[in-house]
Protein backbone atom coordinates (compact mmCIF):
# COMPACT_ATOMS: atom_id res chain seq x y z
CA UNK A 1 0.00 0.00 0.00
CA UNK A 2 1.40 3.37 -0.92
CA UNK A 3 0.59 6.55 0.92
CA UNK A 4 0.46 9.69 -1.20
CA UNK A 5 1.81 12.93 0.25
CA UNK A 6 2.35 16.39 -1.15
CA UNK A 7 5.29 18.56 -0.19
CA UNK A 8 6.48 21.94 -1.31
CA UNK A 9 10.19 21.34 -1.46
CA UNK A 10 12.50 24.31 -1.98
CA UNK A 11 9.60 26.19 -3.52
CA UNK A 12 8.47 23.46 -5.91
CA UNK A 13 5.43 21.22 -5.42
CA UNK A 14 6.09 17.48 -5.22
CA UNK A 15 3.60 14.60 -5.20
CA UNK A 16 5.23 11.57 -3.62
CA UNK A 17 3.93 8.04 -3.16
CA UNK A 18 5.49 6.57 -0.03
CA UNK A 19 5.72 2.79 -0.15
CA UNK A 20 6.68 2.54 3.54
CA UNK A 21 5.44 4.62 6.49
CA UNK A 22 8.83 4.30 8.21
CA UNK A 23 10.60 6.65 5.80
CA UNK A 24 11.85 9.73 7.59
CA UNK A 25 12.02 13.13 5.95
CA UNK A 26 15.81 12.76 5.94
CA UNK A 27 15.73 9.44 4.08
CA UNK A 28 13.14 10.80 1.68
CA UNK A 29 15.36 13.76 0.84
CA UNK A 30 18.60 11.83 0.56
CA UNK A 31 17.61 8.45 -0.81
CA UNK A 32 14.55 9.18 -2.92
CA UNK A 33 14.80 12.79 -4.02
CA UNK A 34 18.58 13.06 -4.47
CA UNK A 35 18.98 15.96 -2.06
CA UNK A 36 22.03 14.93 -0.06
CA UNK A 37 22.75 18.30 1.56
CA UNK A 38 21.05 17.37 4.83
CA UNK A 39 23.40 14.87 6.44
CA UNK A 40 22.79 11.72 8.41
CA UNK A 41 25.04 12.04 11.45
CA UNK A 42 23.49 10.29 14.42
CA UNK A 43 20.04 9.64 12.87
CA UNK A 44 18.61 10.05 16.39
CA UNK A 45 18.07 13.78 16.84
CA UNK A 46 21.25 14.40 18.75
CA UNK A 47 23.68 16.00 16.30
CA UNK A 48 21.67 18.42 14.14
CA UNK A 49 23.42 17.52 10.86
CA UNK A 50 20.01 16.83 9.27
CA UNK A 51 18.50 20.22 10.19
CA UNK A 52 16.02 21.59 7.63
CA UNK A 53 13.17 24.08 7.86
CA UNK A 54 9.63 22.69 7.87
CA UNK A 55 6.95 25.37 7.55
CA UNK A 56 9.68 27.90 8.36
CA UNK A 57 10.94 26.22 11.55
CA UNK A 58 14.17 24.31 11.98
CA UNK A 59 13.71 20.67 12.90
CA UNK A 60 15.66 17.39 12.85
CA UNK A 61 14.67 15.68 9.59
CA UNK A 62 15.82 12.30 10.95
CA UNK A 63 13.02 12.19 13.54
CA UNK A 64 10.12 13.23 11.29
CA UNK A 65 8.19 10.53 9.53
CA UNK A 66 7.65 11.82 6.00
CA UNK A 67 4.11 10.43 5.99
CA UNK A 68 3.12 12.87 8.74
CA UNK A 69 4.27 15.91 6.74
CA UNK A 70 1.59 15.90 4.03
CA UNK A 71 1.12 19.49 2.87
CA UNK A 72 4.27 20.82 4.52
CA UNK A 73 6.74 23.30 3.09
CA UNK A 74 10.32 22.09 3.35
CA UNK A 75 13.44 24.17 2.82
CA UNK A 76 16.81 22.43 2.58
CA UNK A 77 20.29 23.80 2.05
CA UNK A 78 19.84 23.18 -1.70
CA UNK A 79 17.04 25.74 -1.81
CA UNK A 80 18.77 28.46 0.18
CA UNK A 81 20.78 30.38 -2.42
CA UNK A 82 19.22 32.45 -5.19
CA UNK A 83 20.99 30.89 -8.16
CA UNK A 84 24.67 31.71 -7.72
CA UNK A 85 23.98 34.37 -5.09
CA UNK A 86 24.69 32.83 -1.74
CA UNK A 87 22.33 33.32 1.18
CA UNK A 88 23.86 35.75 3.74
CA UNK A 89 24.36 32.88 6.21
CA UNK A 90 26.20 30.81 3.59
CA UNK A 91 28.41 33.78 2.72
CA UNK A 92 29.11 34.43 6.40
CA UNK A 93 30.20 30.82 7.00
CA UNK A 94 32.74 31.18 4.19
CA UNK A 95 33.90 34.61 5.35
CA UNK A 96 34.42 33.46 8.93
CA UNK A 97 35.69 29.95 8.21
CA UNK A 98 32.75 28.38 10.03
CA UNK A 99 33.76 24.80 9.26
CA UNK A 100 36.61 22.38 8.81
CA UNK A 101 35.50 19.06 7.29
CA UNK A 102 32.11 20.46 6.28
CA UNK A 103 29.93 17.50 7.23
CA UNK A 104 27.87 19.39 9.80
CA UNK A 105 27.81 22.62 7.76
CA UNK A 106 24.46 22.27 5.92
CA UNK A 107 22.80 21.56 9.26
CA UNK A 108 24.65 24.42 10.96
CA UNK A 109 23.62 26.84 8.22
CA UNK A 110 19.97 25.78 8.19
CA UNK A 111 19.92 25.96 11.98
CA UNK A 112 21.41 29.47 11.89
CA UNK A 113 18.79 30.54 9.34
CA UNK A 114 16.13 29.21 11.69
CA UNK A 115 17.69 30.91 14.71
CA UNK A 116 17.84 34.30 12.97
CA UNK A 117 14.19 33.93 11.88
CA UNK A 118 13.20 33.13 15.46
CA UNK A 119 14.69 36.48 16.47
CA UNK A 120 15.76 35.14 19.82
CA UNK A 121 19.51 35.62 19.76
CA UNK A 122 20.34 38.76 17.80
CA UNK A 123 24.11 39.19 17.97
CA UNK A 124 24.53 38.15 21.62
CA UNK A 125 27.28 35.49 21.59
CA UNK A 126 25.86 33.63 24.59
CA UNK A 127 22.36 33.49 23.09
CA UNK A 128 23.76 32.35 19.74
CA UNK A 129 25.78 29.56 21.40
CA UNK A 130 22.71 28.45 23.34
CA UNK A 131 20.50 28.71 20.24
CA UNK A 132 22.94 26.62 18.18
CA UNK A 133 23.48 23.92 20.82
CA UNK A 134 21.47 21.40 18.81
CA UNK A 135 24.22 21.34 16.16
CA UNK A 136 27.42 19.51 16.98
CA UNK A 137 30.69 20.13 15.14
CA UNK A 138 33.21 17.41 15.85
CA UNK A 139 35.99 19.41 14.21
CA UNK A 140 35.32 22.07 16.83
CA UNK A 141 34.81 24.97 14.44
CA UNK A 142 32.51 26.65 16.95
CA UNK A 143 34.49 29.91 17.14
CA UNK A 144 34.09 30.49 13.39
CA UNK A 145 30.46 29.35 13.45
CA UNK A 146 29.68 31.87 16.19
CA UNK A 147 31.30 34.72 14.24
CA UNK A 148 29.45 33.68 11.08
CA UNK A 149 26.05 33.62 12.80
CA UNK A 150 26.74 36.94 14.54
CA UNK A 151 27.72 38.56 11.27
CA UNK A 152 24.80 37.12 9.30
CA UNK A 153 22.39 38.08 12.06
CA UNK A 154 23.64 41.68 11.99
CA UNK A 155 23.34 41.84 8.18
CA UNK A 156 19.87 40.35 8.06
CA UNK A 157 16.89 42.07 9.57
CA UNK A 158 17.85 43.45 12.97
CA UNK A 159 15.22 42.73 15.59
CA UNK A 160 14.10 44.82 18.51
CA UNK A 161 15.26 42.26 21.03
CA UNK A 162 18.74 41.92 19.55
CA UNK A 163 21.08 42.45 22.45
Amino acid sequence: MTIPIRLTLNGKPHAIDLDDPRITLLDLLRERLGLTGAKKGCDRGQCGACTVLVDGRRINACLQLAVSLDGAEVLTIEGLSEGDALHPVQAAFIAHDGFQCGFCTPGQIMSAVGLIREGRAGTDPERIREGMSGNLCRCGAYAGILEAVKDASARMEPREDAA
Partner: peptide
Protein backbone atom coordinates in the same frame (compact mmCIF):
# COMPACT_ATOMS: atom_id res chain seq x y z
CA UNK B 1 15.04 21.48 27.54
CA UNK B 2 16.39 19.71 24.45
CA UNK B 3 17.57 21.76 21.45
CA UNK B 4 15.83 24.45 19.40
CA UNK B 5 15.13 21.90 16.64
CA UNK B 6 13.45 19.52 19.06
CA UNK B 7 11.49 22.28 20.82
CA UNK B 8 10.15 23.43 17.43
CA UNK B 9 8.69 19.97 16.85
Amino acid sequence: GASAQLRNA
